[in-house]
Design a protein around this nucleic acid. Sequence first.
DNA 1: TATCGCTATATTATCGATAATGAAACGGAG
DNA 2: CTCCGTTTCATTATCGATAATATAGCGATA
Lengths: 232, 232
Amino acid sequence: MTNENLDKQQGSTTASGRRSAKRSLTVYDDLQREIMLGVLPPMATIVEMEIAERFGCSQSTVREALIALSNDGLVERRSHRGTFVADARADDAHEMIRIRRDIESRSMVRVLRRFGSLLRSELSETIENMKAAAMQDDVYQLTLYDRAFHLNLFDAADLPSVRPMLQRCLIHNHRFKILNSGSQRDLYETAVRHEAILDALAEGNAKKATAAIAHHVTTIAEFGPDITEEDI
Amino acid sequence: MTNENLDKQQGSTTASGRRSAKRSLTVYDDLQREIMLGVLPPMATIVEMEIAERFGCSQSTVREALIALSNDGLVERRSHRGTFVADARADDAHEMIRIRRDIESRSMVRVLRRFGSLLRSELSETIENMKAAAMQDDVYQLTLYDRAFHLNLFDAADLPSVRPMLQRCLIHNHRFKILNSGSQRDLYETAVRHEAILDALAEGNAKKATAAIAHHVTTIAEFGPDITEEDI
DNA sequence: TATCGCTATATTATCGATAATGAAACGGAG
DNA sequence: CTCCGTTTCATTATCGATAATATAGCGATA
């Protein structure tokens, strides 16, 4: 409950109950979920007024959410034409994985400097949440916790300007994985895999931690043959 | 005049004359310039209504521009509190350079597949524009053309989802460089340096081109001792 | 029948006003 | 003098309506 980002998402994920917490965030979260799950498939058209009607809010509010989604690279806005769900191509996805791998790997030595029991227990809790989501087969919730885990960890590196880039990579990774996997059944395994990273950190071994995260990133998504290598 | 991004900027840079071309873009471009040049220093507060008054537009229009700036990581928006110019720290800047180096380096083999005389002449022209800006000591205009050069080149790699990440890196690199250099006088040299990249590409030598861009990125900004290596 | 300019239409972009909100200033109780 | 609740204030967030604009479709012309 300390991660602002996780809070954000919960704020609207819990939308079933209350409905405060910035209207535009609710729209943002809901649309993001539908795009990531493919309910809104690549190339689909999004019309501001339609969304506004659906959520019972004004066009301006939707607009803000759509702009935020375009920041994440989930939609593309064309002036006076409309907003379109972004394509999800394999080449981009692979490059995003590499970028993410590099960012997270390089961050570990910095993370280690600030790694303490507080962060450790927070991350442990997040892993437990992942497991719970996995057991309920809630793929999307699992990715939400996964994102929270990696961003929370990265925050310890204290590189605020880089954070949004990692976030963007994570979103794209997750979207691509969800869109290109016929309901794979190793969800629980995915959650458990995070423990290795935590263990390496607890050990205080920078080299081991770096290797752990690099391995983690390159293996979560069993994309084609070898993701790590330059493709084609 | 083919690059949409360059067009954007010119559209409002030329604002002295006409004033069409999306009001919010004008605000966006002007504020971006002021932030990059330090006119609006890190931590400065930006109030939506003040900007609106200054540009003679409505708060909504400013709002859109500010959201876009926060996407670029140039400002941070805090709910109901205000918008603040983002800090520009060395650690972040260094990591951004590394990310950029990796992205651009890896892209070269893809770029080479599509590199033709049209792109070559476009980039040549951009270099000439850089030289012109350098001779007029217009640092900011130089960075604008530099951005156009690198993005235009990267577009040939056809990795649309990755493009915004590169753009973000470029913006941060330029801002940090401008903010931390007491009017350095090698502007013209900076422009000329791009020719090596073009030459390597024209030669069709992937390895050489990759090395050229990597070298280019790590040397443009003579940050501290060694940018390439992990710092601290 | 192909091309060019015009118009109709769908959609965003902008506006001005009002509501919501978080933080700081204030004041009273202990 | 300090702590805690309340009010006030600066600022964003949202709304509903209007203006601007890019595209598609149509019709006239050669």
